[in-house]
Amino acid sequence: MSEKKKNLDKRASYIKGLSDNIVGSAVDIVKVKPTTQQIDELTKEVTERLQYESSSLLNESVTKLHPDSLSEMLPEEKVERNFERFGKNFRYQHMLMFVSIIILIITGMPLKFPEFDLSKFIVIDLLGGLSNSTFIHRIGAVGLIIVGIWHVIYTIGSKVGRRDFFLMVPNLKDAADFMGTMRYYIGKSKHGPKFDRFSFIEKFDYWAVYWGMVIMIGSGAIMWYKELFPKYFYDIGREMHSDEGLLATLSIVIWHFYNVHFNPEVFPMSWTWWHGQLTESEMKHHHPLEYEAIIKKESQEIIEQSDSKKAGDK
């Protein structure tokens, strides 16, 4: 704490010296009774200098110091900055997907467990019979297929999609992060591993959905057009559809709901699916490597901008 204070004091005296310097030169200029134009020029120069000095200060802090100490140095009442985690396109994909999946689960599960009264209630009383429930199931299926195609196009066609797809590819760091998380859970280390944009947990989620989509859409399509195939295709498809349907439902209800609903940190729900934003502290906590990269990039940009501006002025 005292070190932090010392640091801050150092900074403060530095900035004070800087401003004294500026004021001194300003007084020199004022002495020669400037015109309005000269005052304007002076104002511009002072602003630019301040900008440059503060950005280099920021740059210095980020590159030389630990990012945590940067935030500690900043005033605490500062309004938290938001970071966009999911773009609009991606959020719409997710919305269509969960609407489709809810429809599919409601109309699909009763057919896996027909002996339960609740199943009969849903299909017979709520939906008005098997032909209705299978029709609604197919509406959900079309929704899911659209999401699948949409996502593939998004992955190939959009810059963010391509970037995110490559970031999703599992690598050795994920294995290390998994071990690190385990060590953290059993108390062998004080902090969990630092995650980049996608943690191994999120990668698992993503690829689980990928696998589920392939199985469910593939087997569902075979069942939809069963007459075109030998019957054992249908039998295999039905078995897979039924088993993977249960696995996917359980994974969503247990795992995904824990992460975005029932987890004490976000209960009752994380709203990121709606606004796509993460707060700065959430970013720092859950995706520190991505956060550091963003800050580094931004400060670099600021420096480059002011550098080029300076070069232009000269």
């Binding site: 295999i236 078995e239 897979m240 088993d243 249960l246 247990i254």
Partner: peptide
């Protein structure tokens, strides 16, 4: 093949559920 698919999915489902529950419990305890 239906028998093996059914068995395979059963094993997969049980393993996944054990894994997920273990993870959730450890997370909550931490």
């Amino acid at each position: 093949i239906i028998y093996y698919i059914s068995k395979g999915f059963l094993v997969l489902t049980v393993l996944v559920l054990i894994g997920l529950f273990a993870f959730i419990i450890m997370d909550l305890v931490r």
